[in-house]
Structures are given as structure tokens and as C-alpha cells.
Amino acid sequence: MVAKYVMLADTVRCIDCKACVISCRAEWETPMGYSRDWVKQVEFIKANGMPEVMLFPGRCQHCDEAPCIEACPSGAAYKREDGMVLQDDAICSGCELCVPACPYDARWLNPKTNTISKCTFCQPRVDKGLEPACVQTCVGRALIFGNINDPNSEVSRLLAEKEWVKLTTDEVNIGPNHYYYTAGEAIPAEVMPKLHDRHLAGKVMENVVNPAGVIGVGGMVLAFLGAGVMKLIGRRNEVGTHENQEGK
């Protein structure tokens, strides 16, 4: 069976030490001011008046229905059979159409390479049999990575053991492959995915050019197919009468 990789984040085990973020920075040499992963600290007052802090380590959620892939005009964003949403640097032109498409804000334009950078689940490490850099370094072992299609994997065991949730809303439900455990606590809105205003060019392309073009070209094809058919019928009906004209 083909592997399908997922990441689990046990927020109860996360301590916001930023090890994952710096480990990723060192491993993939991300420039200062940018990071492929993050830990969000959310402070709020609970119903009982007590303060609360929740921690959400995050990164690309490697969605089943990744909108970034669909927003990418060049095919640089792609999904591997094992579920990893990856970026082909050789193709990416850095147009940033995929950036606002991601409701988890996982993509950014890398000024060093002028291409889009994102979490790859450390695919090059995983392919060599290593854990992702963030998982390997995680102090609380809050991050767990593995193959969900292997019933004996740690992720499969943990998923069966506890109640995990994904960061989805009514609005954004695109099959993320990143699971969170919060011990039953509701996930604050700050952490939830949000739809972003896409680039106007993208919207024009998607909602005007593309449909208009398809309808236009399609319509023309249909119309002229119709004309051709009519012509055929006409010819059958009026055999002989219009032979001269047809001969032309």
C-alpha cells in the first residue's frame, strides 16, 4: 500500500520552545524573517474568568484538496502520491498566486531563491528514512510524523488512542493532513484557517478569463458542429438540387 504521511501535533505536549522553528531554519537555510513552521501562542480568558494559554505548532497541512496546487499556474506546486504537497523549484516562477490561496499561511516567497518556499514534511529526509527535522528535535515530543496507512505506525496508534482534530471550518475544509490534540479544548479562532483575498489577477483568470474562454471556445465548437450537422442533413434532403453549390 502506498504510504500516506501525516503530522500529529499534541498541543498538550508543546511548550513553545521554538526548537522546531530553528531546526527547520538550520536544515533548510530559510532566510531571516521567514519560516516554514511556527508555534502560535494564543492567550485568552476562559469562561470561568481564568487566563489560558494554548500552543499550536503549525506548518503546511499537506491538504488532500490543496488549493495552492490548484492556484499554481505553472505546475510547480504538486502533490506526491504519499500526500506530501511539494514545490518544484525548477519550475516555480515566484508569482505568488499560491500564497493567498493557502488558508494556513504556509507559503512565502523566498528572497534568496525567488521561488516559493514551504514545509515539505522534510521529504528529502523522509525519503532517506529520517524523521522531519522539527519532529526529531521536538522537546516535548509534541510532533509525531508517520504513515497513516501503516496500521502499526505510531501515528496510527495515536490516532486510534485519542481524539484528534483537524484545523477545518465550515468555510475551509480541504482535507488537511495535520492533526491536533487539545485534550478536548476548543481550538481558538486565531488558529483556524482563513480564506484570503486572492490576487485580483488570479480572480480575473479564474472567474472571468477561464470561464469566458471555455464557454466561448466551447460555444463556438458546439455552434459550428451544429452548423456542420445541419449542413449534412440539408445535403441529404436536397440531394442533387444543390450539387453544383456543393461541388464548389
Partner: peptide
Amino acid sequence: FADDALCGAIFRWALVAHAASVFLVLV
């Protein structure tokens, strides 16, 4: 593109123009 947002914007609109032209001609 990372240094100047305009370059990326031109790229995106060039893409629109490219596709729109093709469609128009195809019609």
C-alpha cells in the same frame, strides 16, 4: 520578484493576458 512586488504583479497579469489572448484567438 521578492525585492519588488510589482514584478510579480506584472507576471500575474501577463499570465491573464496570455491566456485571454489565446482564448480570444481560439474563438
